[in-house]
Every structure is written in C-alpha cells, then in structure tokens.
C-alpha cells in the first residue's frame, strides 16, 4: 500500500462497519454524524499519506537514489506561532487586546516559519546534483 496508509484504511473500514451497525440499531442522527466525521477524518489522513511520497521502503532496501532531505534541528517559528495561538485564545477571556496581540505573534511565527522553510529548500537545492 502506497504511503503506508493500510492500517488507517483498515481502521476506518472497521469504524464504518461499527457506525453502520449503530445507524441500523439506533438511527440517531447525531451519532451517525459522529461516526461519519471520525471515518472521514481518518480517511482524509490516509488520503494525505497516499498522495505524499513515501519516505522509506517497507521491504528490502529503498529503491533507487533518494533526493537529499533536510533535517530540522530547531524551529523558533513553530514555537512563536503556538504561543501566539495560546495568547489569542486567552484573549477571549482576559481582554480583547490580547486577541490582537496573539494574532500579531502568530503572524510573526508563521513569517519566521516561512523563512525557515525557504532556507531549508535552498539548502536542499544547493545539494542536488
């Protein structure tokens, strides 16, 4: 299975079967929607795995030459964005100025993240034959 999505698909299938039993037995719309939501999220995750390039072969050696791959050691941008989200959410209770402050911090965090990714891609491109 491409992308290693097999366990997710099997799990989603079993969950769908359980949801179908629930639908037949109870007919409760909110419960059916909950099952459908969980199955959809799992299938979406499996879908991402199927679409994206797989990074390691499951059996034997990885086939063919592999592209250079960046290794991330630190990320200041991810931390700033996360703290920004925390401040933003806290602002809903503490004071509206914190909503704006949080949004500002988040924008700074995402900006920094974009910069990190840009430098990473440049470094990879320089290494490519």
């Amino acid at each position: 299975m491409r992308g290693g999505a097999l366990p997710l698909l099997v799990w989603a299938l079993l969950l769908a079967a359980s949801g179908a039993t629930n639908a037949v037995w109870t007919g409760d719309p909110i419960q059916i929607e909950e099952f459908a939501g969980a199955v959809a999220i799992t299938l979406a995750t499996a879908g991402v795995l199927i679409v994206r390039r797989r990074e390691a072969a499951r059996r034997g050696e990885p086939s063919g030459p592999r592209d250079p791959e960046p290794v991330t050691h630190t990320s200041f941008g991810a931390v700033i964005a996360a703290i920004g989200l925390g401040v933003f959410v806290f602002g809903f209770t503490f004071g509206h100025f914190m909503i704006y402050l949080g949004m500002g911090i988040m924008v700074a965090g995402f900006g920094r993240l974009a910069l990190e990714l840009y430098h990473e891609r440049r470094a990879v491109r320089r290494r490519e034959p």
């Binding site: 999505a5 366990p7 499951r58």
Partner: peptide
C-alpha cells in the same frame, strides 16, 4: 506520530 508510523518505517519493518 501517525504519519511517522505510516511513512518512516525502516526497510524490512512491515506493518
């Protein structure tokens, strides 16, 4: 963690 299990298993590490 889900993505790692699905995509980064070593050669030979089947499900």
């Amino acid at each position: 963690i889900t993505m790692t299990i699905a995509r980064r298993r070593a050669p030979g590490m089947t499900v």
